[in-house]
Design a binder for these strands. Structure first.
Length: 544
RNA sequence: GGGGGUGUAACUCAGUCGGUAGAGUAACGGCCUUUUAAGCCGUGAGCCGUGGGUUCGAGUCCCACCGCCCCCA
């Protein structure tokens, strides 16, 4: 907004496309000396609706009633001529306010009726009591305009259904769709609980760079950028892994980071170019320790937060959720009911490939044959890539209940230790839930020479999804000695999807990346940057 | 990149065989002393995604483009 702009409010708003009727109301309010966006506002005694209802009994007898001040958005108005019923909605809930001409005074009441709109923010002060119909209500003695709304909010009754509007104007989605509002609350609570879980187990939260010279720690195309003063090409991180492990070298034994990773790849219902991970490293631990910790974390979160989804499903069928349902390990997602009871299933990678793809992971001809049969591309690619595709096509979609997939091929695991029993497989697991990879963990490779060889093999592949050069600094760090350790990455967005029943990652990211919309009166795509970074600005937006 | 779907009022949606652009909600004007999807009477509201084509006539049929959704590569 043009905050520096001066001049009468109505004149400023007239230059914008304010609907005429709401524009007239602004003038009316100004003429009456009522500030539409008052400064220096203080609301002594203002309570959240939820707190008020917990503190005071609306059914208290006359003379014993609480006086309350509530503030929020006008969500509904029922006009009865000489009185109004308003629904006031705040962060915590919704409460009715009753406003009478007799109480408020003729002039104030008339002005209110002439100017009040859905979406306005107001404060109401008065006694909390019940109406004849038994509805808890603030019998308003004074009402104050806190902020005027000049655009009509989306219909509360029908909600906001248009997917594009919901994503581009998330605020409108949050106003109109309570399930969306609650879902992002659930996300916050899930992250908070996950953080608490890690802290309780003695892990220290750290922040590592998002700007990397060499984007390593995963196989993905990075977003590229440039630092002007240092004349450095940089990438947004695709994973924090190599920095977190440098901290193990430095002597911290348990570290974790919750944060954003960036991968310059396609969008899908389960992929957003920026997404959140919880990544943790644990010295002197092995893969099995993470199986225990991960299982505990996910199962506990499912009981604690899946209850929201169970309640949603129950209410959809007009049933009151039974108490045992709210404490269960069952969480609904679409037409699946996912059972998070411990222990989760444990299967080996080779076993699953055999069962669902009919191939022997360690036999090339068997893999090629299966690829042919299942329509997986083979041309000019390493066997392990084909196996990986077979797993994604044939196995992953079949695993609905949480399943630890262990003994992944070492060729797919360039940063993990090989198993002591079988050098062909890594000491590694992936946790698959409802066909999605939710977590990935392994015993960390700490042999600098072995690591160098694997990096060099990656560079030799000349794959745009793999680093183009060896991260010498990381190798050097390993030379100083890294304790034996195991690490894990847990996809936060997917975790929230699973526990809230969301179908798309966009339903759990407040502001997902969307194609830039051509502005009116401009030729779209005409003089757009011809470079390979068409959406650079969407990511590198500076606050400065 | 390929295929399918979709785009109509602020919101949710109808729109038949190609023949004057519709409803509910919201808004606006009335009536109404406790309603709750308040009610009743009345009014206004549209670049039918954009551009082209076929036709006497296009929201509707055809082509291209744009956005969004889904599937596939």
């Amino acid at each position: 907004m043009a905050t520096g702009e001066r001049g009468p409010l109505t004149a400023r708003l007239a230059r914008m496309t304010v609907p005429t009727d709401r524009h007239d109301k602004l003038g009316k309010l100004q003429a009456s000396g009522v500030p539409t966006y008052p400064a220096g506002m203080s609301l002594p005694g203002r309570e959240l609706i939820q707190d008020l209802l917990a503190r005071a009994d609306p059914g208290a007898p006359e003379g014993d009633r609480a006086v309350a001040t509530i503030a929020g958005r006008v969500a509904s108005v029922r006009d009865h001529g000489n009185s109004l019923f308003l629904d006031i909605k705040d962060d915590s809930g919704r409460l009715q306010a009753f406003v009478r001409k007799k109480t408020l005074g003729e002039a104030a009441f008339v002005l209110l009726k002439e100017t009040l709109d859905l979406g306005d923010f107001v404060a109401c002060r008065g006694e909390l009591a019940r109406t004849r119909m038994g509805e808890a209500t603030v019998f308003t003695e004074s009402l104050e305009l806190l902020s005027k709304s000049t655009l009509a909010p989306p219909s509360e009754w029908y909600g906001l259904a248009d997917v594009e509007t919901r994503l581009r104007k998330r605020y409108a989605d949050l106003i109109a769709n309570p399930e969306s509002f609650e879902r992002f609350r659930a996300r916050s609570a899930i992250v908070r609980d996950a953080r608490h879980f890690m802290e309780e187990r003695g892990f220290m939260e750290v922040e590592t760079p998002m700007l990397h010279g060499i984007a390593g720690g995963a196989a993905a195309k990075p977003f590229r950028t440039h630092h002007n003063t240092l004349h450095m090409d940089l990438s947004l991180r695709i994973a924090p892994e190599l920095y977190l492990k440098r901290l193990l070298v430095g002597g911290y034994e348990r570290v974790f980071e919750i944060g954003r990773n960036f991968r310059n790849e396609g969008l899908s219902p389960r992929h957003n170019p920026e997404f959140s991970m919880l990544e943790a490293y644990w010295a002197y631990a092995r893969m099995d320790d993470w199986i225990e910790a991960c299982e505990t974390l996910v199962a506990d979160l499912a009981v604690a937060h899946g209850c929201h989804q169970r309640a949603v499903e129950a209410t959809a069928e007009d049933e009151t959720p039974a108490p045992e349902l709210l404490e269960s390990h069952l969480v609904v997602r679409g037409d699946r009911v996912i059972d998070y009871s411990r222990p989760f299933a444990r299967r080996t990678y080779a076993e699953l490939i055999q069962e669902y793809a009919g191939a022997d992971v360690f036999d090339e001809s068997s893999v090629l044959q299966a690829a042919e049969k299942h329509g997986v591309a083979t041309g000019g690619r390493g066997v392990y890539k084909i196996v990986d595709d077979l797993f994604g096509t044939c196995v992953e979609p079949q695993l609905v209940n949480p399943t630890f997939v262990t003994h992944l091929p070492i060729a797919l695991s360039p940063l993990s230790k090989a198993s002591a029993e079988d050098p062909r497989v890594a000491e590694r697991f992936e946790l698959i839930v409802d066909g999605m990879e939710l977590a990935n963990a392994f015993s960390e490779l700490n042999d600098p020479e072995d690591q160098r060889e694997r990096f060099e093999a990656q560079v030799a592949e000349r794959d745009p999804e793999l680093p183009a050069e060896v991260d010498e600094d990381y190798i050097e760090a390993l030379r100083y000695g890294m304790p034996p350790a195991a690490g894990i990455g847990i996809g936060i967005d997917r975790l929230v999807m699973l526990l809230t029943g969301a179908d798309s990652i966009r339903d759990v990211i407040l502001f997902p990346l969307l194609r830039a919309r051509a502005r009116d009166g401009e030729e779209a795509g005409d003089e757009e940057s011809p470079s390979a970074e068409p959406r650079k600005d969407a990511h590198l937006k500076s606050e400065g």
